[in-house]
Computed example of a mutant assay.
Amino acid sequence: MANERPVQLDIPALEVEKLFYLEAKCDPIIPVGDVGTAELNIYCISEGYFEGEKLRGEILKFGADWNYMYPNRYDVMKTRYLLKTDDGAIISISTDGRYLNTLEQDQALDRGEYVDPRNYYFRQHIFFETGAEKYKWLNGVIAFAVMGIKPTGEICYNAYMLK
Rank of each mutant, 00 (worst) to 15 (best):
C26G: 03
F144N: 01
Y160R: 03
Y114A: 14
L83D: 00
T37D: 09
P71W: 07
Q107S: 12
P12Y: 10
Y21F: 14
P6G: 09
Y160Q: 06
D10P: 08
W137F: 13
F122W: 08
A2D: 14
L9C: 04
E104S: 08
I142R: 07
D116G: 14
D65I: 01
E15P: 08
R56P: 10
T152H: 13
G140T: 09
Q107R: 13
D96R: 14
G52Y: 02
V7F: 05
P6Q: 09
A89M: 00
P151Q: 03
E113K: 07
E15W: 08
Y114C: 11
N119M: 10
L138K: 10
I149F: 06
Y70S: 12
Y135A: 12
A64V: 04
D116A: 14
H125M: 14
L109Y: 09
K25F: 12
G52V: 04
L83W: 04
L40H: 08
G140Y: 08
R98A: 10
Y74A: 04
M77P: 00
Y160K: 04
L109T: 12
I90T: 08
Y43C: 00
E154C: 03
G48L: 04
R80Q: 08
T130N: 03
A143D: 01
A24I: 09
F50G: 03
Y160G: 06
V76S: 02
I42S: 11
V7T: 07
F144S: 04
R56Y: 13
R5T: 12
